[in-house]
Simulated scan of single mutants.
Amino acid sequence: MEFGILMGDQPVSSSPTQHLDLMLRKVEAAQRAGFTYLTLGQHFLYDGFRWLQPVPLLARLAAELDDHVRIGTTVLIGPVHHPVILAEELATLDIVTGGRLVVGIGTGYLPHEYETMGVPFGQRYRMLEEMIEVMTKLWSQDRVSHEGRFWRIDDLPTHVRPVQQPRPPIWLGAMRETGVRRAARHGDVWTITPQQTIGQVDALIRTYAAERTSRGLPLSPLPLRRELMIGADFDDAVSRFAAVARGKYEAYAGRGMTLLGDDEVRNFGDTVRDHVILGDAESCRQQIADIAAALPIGPLLVRPHWPGMDAEQTEAYLERVGREIVTPLRELQSRSFSDFLETSAA
């Protein structure tokens, strides 16, 4: 089993230089702890928290990568970008990383990001599908022609091609059945979001597999995002998790994330127990092993840092998870897709 981290936002009250230092120390600590995927998301004009933009930041972090470590976006807000600009920037980043880029892309959920960019929020899913088609052409062809609903290219040459051919792996984020089917059609894998229970994930993976199989597309293990907190026991782990994560859950609820309502935020322990890995180290290892035995997943992506945590806290988290989770589970194998599909739904 491979493990990765999600690198995110920081309160704007911290200085930009402190934020960059945190990212650099996080990358160093994660690699030292055995993590092999380092990923970063994206937002624009975000209230109270700073999201350093992923393409330039990942180019800087690429200089710190060990040879076996991959770097990626999880996730870019695709439709607010022009596909030619984004394709050339990502191809450049793939070159900078020596062909170790993963492109996680989705639609986001904040209307103001679209309104500010002059992009129709209601068209975001159609735009995402078309932009993946355009970028794939730009990455894999010498000349490109495209006549679509949103973009047109008239037989023009390409000049920046990624190292990985025909394209870097595309991880598509989605939370519901329609989005999962879209990920199956247009991406290389579906990135499983952290708010879903294992039962929900089981059903959606079957939907994903059916869509892929009907189109003759291959099936690969699916990246699984999961929050993780180790404590002395379950209650201690919940307390530790609430101390760092509760504010962010409340912020998500305030921004309209429907999976996190007011009642769920008030009853925080009940909210997180079905989709967060919590407990002592042995219990957390067993929970991960149980997930891997049930589902065709990998890598497992965790968040080592919540806004407000300092670099020392983040490094300590990564060191502990590396010692007590990553190293002991390095040889863990997830369930194969063929075995998963031979069994009935849970």
Score class of each variant (00 low, 15 high):
residue 342 E to V: 02
residue 295 L to C: 06
residue 65 L to G: 02
residue 127 M to W: 03
residue 265 V to M: 04
residue 178 T to V: 15
residue 222 L to W: 06
residue 165 Q to S: 11
residue 94 D to I: 07
residue 7 M to P: 00
residue 171 W to N: 05
residue 249 Y to I: 08
residue 163 V to E: 07
residue 27 V to A: 14
residue 191 T to H: 06
residue 335 R to T: 04
residue 56 P to F: 08
residue 141 Q to V: 03
residue 30 A to I: 04
residue 41 G to A: 12
residue 152 R to N: 06
residue 103 V to T: 10
residue 192 I to N: 08
residue 252 Y to F: 14
residue 13 S to F: 10
residue 241 F to A: 05
residue 214 S to G: 02
residue 224 L to Y: 13
residue 33 A to Q: 05
residue 315 E to N: 00
residue 167 R to L: 04
residue 177 E to G: 12
residue 118 G to Y: 06
residue 73 T to H: 03
residue 115 E to G: 01
residue 84 V to W: 12
residue 285 R to F: 00
residue 180 V to N: 01
residue 45 L to Q: 12
residue 225 R to D: 08
residue 44 F to S: 12
residue 192 I to M: 13
residue 70 R to V: 01
residue 5 I to G: 00
residue 110 L to K: 14
residue 249 Y to F: 15
residue 47 D to L: 04
residue 242 A to T: 14
residue 243 A to R: 15
residue 78 G to C: 10
residue 281 A to P: 01
residue 110 L to W: 08
residue 166 P to Q: 07
residue 345 A to P: 01
residue 84 V to R: 11
residue 280 D to F: 08
residue 287 Q to W: 09
residue 30 A to H: 06
residue 343 T to S: 12
residue 331 E to K: 12
residue 178 T to W: 12
residue 300 L to M: 14
residue 264 E to Y: 13
residue 259 L to Q: 15
residue 44 F to Y: 14
residue 243 A to I: 02
residue 108 G to Q: 08
residue 29 A to G: 05
residue 147 E to V: 04
residue 44 F to C: 02
residue 68 H to N: 08
